[in-house]
Design a protein around this nucleic acid. Structure first.
Length: 262
DNA sequence: TTAGGGTTACAA
DNA sequence: TTGTAACCCTAA
């Protein structure tokens, strides 16, 4: 590679984003040829667009470089549902529901009860949908939850969740350079990494659920205190009004006060 | 033509 | 030394 690396400018990135918005991810050639973007992207090939979008997608998902955590490339039967390429690489849009870490769930009682699905349910759904013969690893589940279902984990929580799953032995390139096929098999051949990942994920889910429950209790307590405060304020207003009326010489009966008929 | 894995340049 | 981003290669 003799030519120096051509860094992407913000204009090019913006053009790419708008191109993806307009044509969808995967239509790199179309985007590249689109007269709206071609002036900016003239020096980029469709492959460049794809690569840049991949980089953007990985950074947007909080997974960092694609070299850090590799989603195993499974050969799934054609009958198995697989997310469309367009969805697969699409960074989470701005309007997705962002399922925060459990400690953040209590922000809104409505969100807690109606909008944010339980993590266990999300994972179960992911497993059911992915239908991978040997089960799905955490990264795949994470990707499914974030991209396919448009529930976005916060970056911090995703990193926390994924951190223990990283196998140091898989971190860097293997000097022996095994073939693609053997590498794909390798993830499941030992069985234990996938099993460990599943167990770790289960523990995380249980922990998250416990925290969510605690947060819910705290939320209910906060609501109770808030109601008390409201009632107290209401009584204060009533007392103040009564004081005003009485100080003006008005005579009010207990019944009138009780029914606020004054 | 595209997706995905590999390689390499570069910056911290 | 390591992580990231850009570029390259190949299978489908």
């Amino acid at each position: 590679m003799g030519a120096p690396k051509q860094k992407w400018t913000s204009e090019e990135e913006e053009a790419l984003r708008r191109g993806v918005l307009k044509h969808g991810a995967g239509k790199w050639r179309t985007i590249q040829k689109d007269p709206e973007f071609s002036p900016v992207l003239s020096s980029r090939s469709n492959i460049d667009l794809k690569d840049k979008w991949r980089n953007l997608s990985f950074s947007a998902s909080g997974l960092g470089s694609r070299d850090k955590i590799r989603v195993p490339r499974m050969k799934v039967p054609s009958s198995s549902p697989s997310p469309s390429p367009q969805l697969l690489l699409l960074p989470a849009p701005d309007n997705v529901v962002e399922a925060s870490a459990p400690e953040d769930i209590a922000k809104s009682p409505e969100d807690d009860k109606t909008h944010i699905p339980k993590y266990s349910a999300m994972i179960l759904e992911a497993l059911a949908e992915l239908k991978e013969p040997n089960g799905s690893d955490v990264t795949t589940i994470y990707n499914f939850i974030e991209i396919e279902k448009s529930y976005k984990l916060t970056d911090a929580y995703a990193k926390k969740m994924l951190a223990p799953m990283k196998d140091p032995s898989q971190k860097k390139k293997d000097p022996a350079k095994p073939s693609k096929a053997s590498k794909n098999l390798g993830l499941f051949a030992a069985a234990s990494p996938a099993l460990d990942a599943a167990q770790a994920a289960a523990m995380k889910v249980a922990d998250a659920e416990a925290k969510a429950h605690l947060a819910n209790e705290h939320m209910m307590e906060a609501e109770r205190i808030f109601k008390m405060a409201e009632e107290t304020e209401s009584l204060l207003t009533l007392a103040s009004e009564l004081y005003d009326r009485c100080s003006r010489g008005e005579v009010l009966t207990v019944l009138q006060v009780a029914h606020r008929e004054f």
